[in-house]
Simulated assay, not measured.
Amino acid sequence: MTNPLFYAKILLFGEYGIIEDSQGLTLPYSFYKGTLKFSDLNTDFEKKSNTSLGKYADYLTDITLPEKFELDVNAFKADIAKGLFFDSNIPQGYGVGSSGALVAAIFEKYSVLDYQPESISKDELKELKKVFGLLESYFHGKSSGIDPLICYMNLPILIENRDNVDRVTIPQGEAGKGAIFLIDSGMTGETGPMVQIFFEKMKTEGFRKTLKEEFIRYNNACIDAFLKKEMTPLFRNLKNLSVWAYEHFKPMIPESLYNAWKKGLDSNAYYLKLCGSGGGGYILGFTRDYGKAEKMLAGFEKEVIYRF
């Protein structure tokens, strides 16, 4: 296949919790995509991307990967010299996996062994997640490897715990009144600083306790209810999750959305949650009546990703 496309991803549930062994649920988002291409590097975008790839190739030279997941870094460098760049419309700093798609594309093209995503076993998925974590840590300082894994597999993935992941079937969407949607906060977020804030918070026993006893419980219950298509428990736990985030993840909530977040909780018309690390980019919304939520969120750019 020439120039395979790598789609963005959306982490529906599990932001920050997956660092502490909660479950997570993530799916590909084909609205945004990227692919490796060659060009004469005539535009600033192409030049910048090519230069970035060169720096990344230097990083790859310095790390050691397991033999079965080795990359042909010399071929990668030779292609960079010929004008390779990553042609992508995935917004950076929006929590939809811009670096994940890039890592997936590089692995697919330069992996020494030939892998077919559909034939990768559950044990190999676990190994591949670790490898992708190492490959993506260049961009974030520390990476779980989940984003590149989703982008590479191009399938919904259930994160069972810190180590194990598996393919999962998402209930078929239908043209109902309910929706899951993205809201554009109008600002980019940086993963590194947000994750740093989270680790600072984790130093306090009270925060660790509430994260484990409340956040992770609500998060896992949401995943269970969503996969079973049980909307009443889903929305009950979503509200708990949204309240918890409003109280404990305030620094990660873009300021432009504070009031809208609270308005959703007060009216029960919709509930908001972080999409990725927060700080900017997209926020996720869940509602049983999208028409009503849309009116209440007038002025914000929104994209529906799932109907029910």
Rank of each mutant, 00 (worst) to 15 (best):
I106K: 01
Y152L: 10
P171T: 00
E174H: 15
S99H: 08
Q172R: 04
E190Q: 14
A104K: 03
I150W: 08
G133N: 07
Q172N: 14
I106T: 07
P117R: 14
R167H: 09
D184A: 10
F139I: 09
L125S: 04
I183E: 04
C151T: 05
P156L: 14
N164M: 03
F86R: 08
F86N: 06
I146H: 03
G186W: 05
V165D: 11
C151L: 01
G178Y: 12
I180W: 07
G133C: 06
F181V: 08
D87N: 09
I170W: 08
L113A: 11
Q116F: 06
V168C: 00
E108G: 14
A179R: 02
N89I: 03
L182D: 12
F132N: 11
L158P: 01
D123L: 10
S111M: 12
G95T: 11
S88Q: 07
L113N: 15
L125N: 05
G145T: 03
G100M: 13
G189A: 00
V112Q: 14
G178H: 13
G178V: 13
Q116S: 09
S119H: 14
A104E: 02
L155A: 08
I180N: 11
G93F: 06
G93E: 03
I146V: 01
I90V: 09
I120E: 03
G97M: 08
A179D: 07
L113V: 09
S99L: 09
I150C: 14
A105N: 13
P171M: 04
K130P: 06
A104D: 08
F139D: 04
F132A: 06
G186H: 03
I159K: 05
V96C: 13
E108H: 15
Q172P: 09
K126S: 14
L158Y: 00
K130W: 04
N161C: 08
G173A: 14
G145K: 00
N89K: 01
S121F: 06
K177M: 11
G173D: 15
I150V: 15
I170Y: 08
P117D: 09
I120L: 13
D87V: 08
R162M: 07
E136A: 10
L155N: 10
A175R: 09
S111Q: 13
I157V: 05
S98Q: 10
K129M: 11
I90D: 07
P156M: 15
S111R: 13
